[in-house]
Amino acid sequence: MTTEYTAIAALAGGALIGAAAVMMMGLTGRIAGVSGIAARLLPPWDGALAGRIAFIAGLIVATLVVRLTTGRLPPLTLDIGPIALIVAGLLVGFGAVWGNGCTSGHGVCGIASLSPRSMVATLVFMATAVATTFLVRHVM
C-alpha cells in the first residue's frame, strides 16, 4: 500500500523527536535511546528504573493523548504474519542491544553528536533494512 510523502509533517515530527532528545540530555544527562532505555527495564535493575518506566509510559500515552484530543489516530498498517512479526521483534531487540543502540540512539543522538560509531551503525542498519525490504517485497 502506498503512503503519501508528507514533507512538512515529517520535518516537524523529526524536530519534536530532536527536542525530546535535547530535553533528555540537558535535563537528565542521558541519551534518549529507546532501545537502551527499554532493555534496562529488564533486570538487573539500577536506581534509574522509575525514570525509564516513565519515559516508555510517555511514548505509549502520547498515542492515547492524540486519540483523546483529535478523536483519531494516524493510520497503522501492518502487513505481516505473526511468525515473521516475532522473528522481526527478536532481531530488532537483539540487534539493538548488541549494537548499543537503534534508530534513536545511533540514528538521531549519535549522528547529532558526530559519533563515528553511530554513523557506521546507522549506515549498516539502513543497508541491511533496505536489503531485507527488497528481498521481502520483490524477491520472495
Binding site: 505481516i80 522473528v87 527478536l90 530488532v92 549494537g99 551503525a121 549498516v124 541491511t128 531485507t132
Partner: peptide
C-alpha cells in the same frame, strides 16, 4: 548488532 537490527527493521 546494527546489521541484525536492520534485518528485523526491514522485515516489519
Amino acid at each position: 548488532g546494527p546489521a541484525i537490527f536492520g534485518i528485523g527493521w526491514g522485515l516489519a
